[in-house]
Amino acid sequence: MGQLSGVQSQVFRPLPDVLRSEAIVERLTTAITLGLLRQGEQLPVENQLTAMFGVATATVRDALQSLRDQGIIETRRGRSGGTFIVGTPESNSAALEKRLVGLSMAELRDLSDEQASNGMAAVRLAAERSSTRDIERLESIASLVATADSAAACVRADSRFHIEIAVLAQSERLMQTEMRLLSESVEILWSVLDWKADREWAAADHLAIVKALRDGDIDAAQSAVRDHVSRNTYRLVEHRLDAMYPTGGAR
């Protein structure tokens, strides 16, 4: 193959230079941040992790050591021994700000489009597939964010709700996509929002989605998801613009 065309050079663009052990650390810290793995929960044993991640034992050991050094996990010996989650990853507001500023307007809009698309598809399937009891359960999850007592708790409660919609949709793929989208955006979102003031409207947005589901109104449920995503995107865009292009208080 000689010179590559525009499209082909995309295919052969460099792979992200993330070491595998760093990828494991990243995966686990994101899961803890989103609330998918909880405090006190036990991790699978080393050779299970090795098999699941499909990496060498040494790679898993490196990753666990790094998590141990950060105070996120602890390994206890003895009969009730094992590796447990004992800490929360520190959310680094400077790093989150840098990630937000690094996204262009076009990228933020694209992210928002994917969130709206995935969320709307999931809520449609959830409307078609969930039982009355499922929706009751979703309702209790929807308002969790209103009583969350920190930005990190808001991140977990918010994530829980969006993942639950994909769960009710009974779609593993939509759930995986939702988890990826949340890992890209939800921490940044709550670093931009004022959690004390904004958790109420986040909960109200969630409850509006649940109400539409309870009414069996698929169109209303989809609109509610889209509006929720749009509001979040608006706040992200405004924050980024203020950070990058300050206007001397004119605004």
Binding site: S112, T233, R235, V237, E238
Partner: peptide, 12 residues
């Protein structure tokens, strides 16, 4: 093409 606020998103 380009907007100065979250109200005007590119492409819309």
């Amino acid at each position: 093409v380009l907007g100065n606020s979250g109200r005007f998103l590119v492409g819309n």
